[in-house]
Every structure is written in structure tokens, then in C-alpha cells.
Amino acid sequence: MENKVLLVEDDPDFGAMLQQYLEYSDMSVEWIDDPRKMLDRLDSLSLYDIAILDVMLPHMNGFKLAELFLSSYPKLPILFLTAKDQKIDKLTGLKIGADDYMTKPCDPEELTLRLHNILKRTKIQPTLHQIIPLGNYTFDQEKMLLTHPQSGSIQLTERENKLLSYLIQHKDQLIARDDILKEVWQSNDFFAGRSMDVFISRLRKYLQRDENLIIETIRGIGFKVNF
């Protein structure tokens, strides 16, 4: 079955080129040139397997659009494109929950490979509906919900869900950074490493209402999880 890609790109030449190349690679692509066209279609995001968002869009930048997308459909993987190779852009994308990030002009073949890697990773779903007691919290893997009796539920992203599941599987163990990157990110490059640090910080914040749930950083090695 074809993977369905939502492409939001305002450059007509670049957008047409990407759409054509991805369709040659057996993907179904819907190309939107104005982010405002998606504002009344947020309930249709589940139709897509992945979204490619240009950061520098008219009327609304790609980061803001991604936040709207993920608030409506947290499972949607997102790859950002930008003409600017600036650190602040990459960190912003990571904090929002980007699955990958490429600087324009990008190689369409490399982009296609990255999309396939993201799709391969994110389409792996839990086979059982399991609710896990986690200190004062409960963790619903299938619904991707982390719930605390006082503060309520947090809707996790696909990667947050997978990372937390991996940490729980290795509770009370010292876990090497490379092992987490290999399992959850399927990459150990600089971008993946920075992304992992952002996601670890995010999980610590989510779990802060139980002082016994600790993700300890072991410098130069990885993490020690006490769940």
C-alpha cells in the first residue's frame, strides 16, 4: 500500500520537484502551498502517514503548523525542511517533536530514504493493549497516555511512547546512549543524539510528580533508569 505524504511547501518549483520525485518512489503526495488551507482540515490528519513541512512558510511558519498538527494527531511523524542552516531552528524543531530535519536544497533521494526510515520505525505498533503501573502514574502504551491521578493525562508522541517503553523494559539498568539511539532512533548521528537528549528531558518533566522515577545521566555512558 502506498504511503500517504502531506507536503506543505510554498516554493512552486521545489514543491513540484519533490512531489514528482516522491510519487516516482511509490508514495502518494498531497502538496499544499499555503498552511492556512490545513486549518479547517486538522481532523483529516490521520489519513496521512507522514508530513513534510517547510519552516519558512507564509502566514504561519512550519513550527506553529506542526504544533497544531500534533495537538490534533500526536501520532503524525513530521520532517522539517528549511533554507536556513541555523542551530536555533533545529532545536526548535526537536522540542516540538520533529522526527527528522533537512536543510534545503536537499537531495530528493536522501529525503526519500529518510522518509522510509521514519515510516518503518513509526508504523511498528504495540501488539497488546497493556496498561503499566509506573510509580504514581499509569502508562497506556496503545493509547500513548501517561496518567497521574492529580495532574491528569499527557498525550505522548509516537517517539515519546517508544522511548518510555524502552526505558521501562530496561528499568534499574545502566543503558548505553548508543543502545537507545539504535533501538528508538535507528541512527547515532549528531542530530539523533541531540534529539534523544531533548526527549529524555521531556520525559523527566512528565515524571516529575514521582520522585522515585529517575532517569539519571551517566556522563560518557548513557542513563541509569530507576522505575
Rank of each mutant, 00 (worst) to 15 (best):
P149Y: 02
I215E: 06
H170S: 09
E142W: 13
A16V: 08
L164G: 09
H148G: 09
Q125C: 06
Y48M: 04
L53P: 02
F227Q: 11
L76W: 06
D210G: 03
I154Y: 08
K104I: 01
L70G: 02
D40V: 11
L45G: 02
V225Y: 15
E67K: 15
W185E: 10
E160G: 06
E30D: 02
Y206W: 10
D33Y: 05
C106A: 05
I218Y: 05
D99E: 06
C106Q: 01
E23I: 13
G222D: 06
L79G: 10
A192R: 13
C106W: 05
M17W: 14
D140R: 15
C106H: 05
E183L: 13
D54Y: 12
P77T: 09
F191S: 04
S151R: 15
D89Q: 10
D13Q: 15
L213W: 14
R36W: 11
L7G: 00
P149R: 11
D172L: 15
K162Y: 08
L167V: 08
K37W: 10
I218P: 10
T138S: 04
R41Q: 03
W185R: 15
R209G: 00
R159N: 09
S28L: 13
V184E: 06
D178L: 13
P149K: 05
I32T: 02
L47W: 09
D140M: 12
D40N: 08
I221T: 09
